[in-house]
Design a protein around this nucleic acid. Structure first.
Lengths: 255, 255
DNA sequence: CGTGACGTTGAAGAAGGTCAACCAATGTGG
DNA sequence: CCACATTGGTTGACCTTCTTCAACGTCACG
């Protein structure tokens, strides 16, 4: 396997070990997974609604959205995945896709066959546990998304989304000012927040004039992180991203 | 163990086997789980936000809501659980609660220690898989909830919620008219749909005048199921409730 | 240099929220 | 068995937020 792909699996492994305790052997089983790299164009579905898949997709670079829609055709993004995320880990236990997966910008993804994941989890139950746990973090994010869309005004929703993305993309967060790449259109922000692109545009203008954040074509310029967190009513706890080593979990055969 | 509690576990086992293939031995392991029954008053939290739990809660009767809230204190229900549901199965791999659990009406729940679940899954990996799969169905429901709240008008949201509940409560669905018990207040419907109780009241009146459904104190009277499904843009597929035996899954050590 | 995708802005209107009053059902203590 | 309190449902008037529609601007790229 080319070294670059091992590095990509390392990113995923780091994600797992940030929350779960794995032995060296178990970690190696992740790194040994067979992969197949693929380039996906912006706005192109790589998993269609209802499709039965036989592999999971690990994002190496770019952004991927999970799309649902109602019968009138209005689209709603129910999750945004970033590099290091397994976009459809749940497909291991539920191969029929309940949502479409689409690249928001050009993305590189690694396909990993279900069969390889299954073989690894059969040999190492702790891996199944770690994967299950990772799925539950996605569910916690989804739950927060419901609160955001259901109970917040446009300004809060958008600020919250930007805070979440800055955090998950591991932006160099500083209290003063910093920048992070976030290549999405205002229409995509609208689809994620349950708004119209017109209103997103107006709210982004407000956030800019307030001196909080400037969302540009190729990047987001955060001018006042603390202010943005307040505006977005953001508490990063639910992302479970900074778990201390002694708090990481393992319920299967404790070491 | 009293026979009644075995019956309750049977309801949960039926839920699992409706989607996953389990051997007789594995099924018996579920029925053998130790339980402890408990009565919970309406509007009382039995799991608080951030609390670390050491047991899961199986609903025997009543309704339970999963509550989140933003810092302004407005509440959002992110899930409604019915009899036979394990309200916090995810706590097995993630013991710290990211949402509070509250009974919407008087409820009876069975507590099952994590340790017992862990012992069962350690002996029977297929059980871990079945539980994981069950968690993913909850996630699919949550995803649909985002679409509902993010992209639908009040009338559609409420109709959708009523359709979902009728289906999950296994109401005797008929095209003509039928009734099912659904003891929630209009404020609780508002918390679930991201609306205010005043607006819920007005929309329920509209649905009643349209001859679709009459939401009363103790029950919901559906007058036109087909019409209600159209109004709610409801497609029951995502609930994964009628899976044919040959489509049920087992990836661990196929029988 | 034209074309298409995306961003920006204004005007008008609809959906839903807020506030406030009142009603109906249920439960409790005297 | 009644007075009263409490909870939840109902309605109206008014206001805010967001959508809709439509036009125009701007940037990147072949």
């Amino acid at each position: 396997m080319p070294r670059s792909e091992t590095r990509n699996l390392q990113a995923f492994l780091d994600r797992l070990t940030s929350r779960s305790v794995l032995t060296g052997e178990e970690q190696q089983a992740i790194l040994d997974l067979p992969t197949h790299a693929e380039q996906v164009d912006a706005n192109s579905d790589f998993v269609g609604l209802g499709e039965i898949v036989d592999h999971v997709s690990l994002i190496v670079s770019g952004l991927v959205g999970r799309f649902d829609q109602n019968s009138e055709g209005s689209r709603q993004i129910t999750a945004i995945h970033v590099a290091g995320d397994m976009t459809n880990l749940h497909s291991v236990v539920q191969p029929q896709a309940t949502s479409a997966l689409q690249a928001l910008s050009v993305a590189t993804i690694l396909s990993i066959p279900h069969s390889a994941i299954r073989a690894a989890t059969a040999r190492h139950p702790a891996l199944a546990e770690a994967l299950w746990r990772d799925c539950m973090v996605d569910a916690a994010i989804l739950s927060q998304w419901v609160v955001n869309v259901g109970r917040c005004h446009a300004r809060t929703r958008i600020a919250h989304l930007l805070c979440e993305m800055a955090t998950r993309l591991k932006a160099p967060v500083e209290r003063e000012a910093f920048t992070f790449p976030f290549l999405v259109t205002q229409t995509q922000i609208a689809d994620a927040t349950g708004l119209t692109s017109v209103h997103v545009n107006r709210v982004l203008k407000v956030l800019r004039l307030e001196g909080l954040v400037d969302v540009q074509r190729r990047a987001v310029v955060v001018q006042d992180w603390d202010g943005l967190m307040v505006a977005g009513d953001f508490d990063p706890n639910y992302l479970q991203m900074n778990i201390q080593p002694e708090e990481r979990l393992r319920i299967v055969r404790p070491i």
